[in-house]
């Protein structure tokens, strides 16, 4: 399967199928990250961040693949790991090559989203599932009320806002501590 075909699959919303293909580039990234101080878990986490960025970029209308997917994912992973090392006040034992320049703005945004992701881990499973059902699965509030056992749509909506507020609050707390 060519790189462009994988991008097309991502654009079609078949992320699961594309991800299976995209993991074939992981071993070289994992090797590099491990050689530069990452644990196995950290390496996988970094690569998944890079995959997420690729998936978001691929869905942009004006996105054009300027390098091979493997190179793109390697560069983004390398950059994310570099930023991670800098934040931890650890030495960066490698340099970014000229051709490896990535969209830093996007990666900064992703860092914030990463904090939000951690915040969402602390709001409780049910709260997250409600937010997921509404924002990701695009279910209407009537269905959510039925699925989660709320008396009516209004109760479900109130609960959703409470969960969102809780997530925002947790995020703000985590952001301050960073």
């Amino acid at each position: 399967m060519t790189d462009q075909e994988i991008i097309n699959i991502l654009r079609d919303g078949k992320e699961d199928k594309a991800l299976l293909k995209l993991y074939k580039f992981y071993p070289s990234v994992e090797y590099f990250l491990k050689m530069n101080g990452a644990s196995k878990e950290e390496a996988l986490d970094v690569y998944q961040d890079a995959l997420y960025i690729l998936c978001k970029k691929a869905k942009e209308k004006d996105f054009k693949l300027s390098a091979q997917l493997s190179t793109y994912l390697f560069s983004v992973s390398k950059y994310i790991w570099k930023e991670s090392l800098i934040k931890k006040n650890r030495m960066v034992p490698f340099t970014m090559e000229a051709h490896e320049i990535v969209d830093e703005t996007l990666i900064v945004e992703e860092e914030k989203a990463s904090v939000a992701e951690k915040a969402l881990a602390s709001i409780g499973e049910k709260c997250f599932e409600i937010l997921k059902a509404f924002y990701h699965e695009k279910l209407n509030m009537n269905l959510i009320a039925e699925a989660f056992g709320f008396a009516n749509e209004k109760s479900a909506r109130n609960q959703k806002y409470k969960c969102l507020e809780k997530a925002k609050s947790e995020y703000s707390e985590l952001s301050k501590s960073k």
């Binding site: 997420y52 945004e109 992703e110 914030k112 989203a113 990463s114 904090v115 939000a116 992701e117 915040a119 969402l120 997250f128 937010l131 997921k132 924002y135 990701h136 969102l164 997530a167 925002k168 995020y171």
Partner: peptide, 8 residues
Amino acid sequence: IVLRGIDR
């Protein structure tokens, strides 16, 4: 950011 966090 929180909405992006959910997506992520």
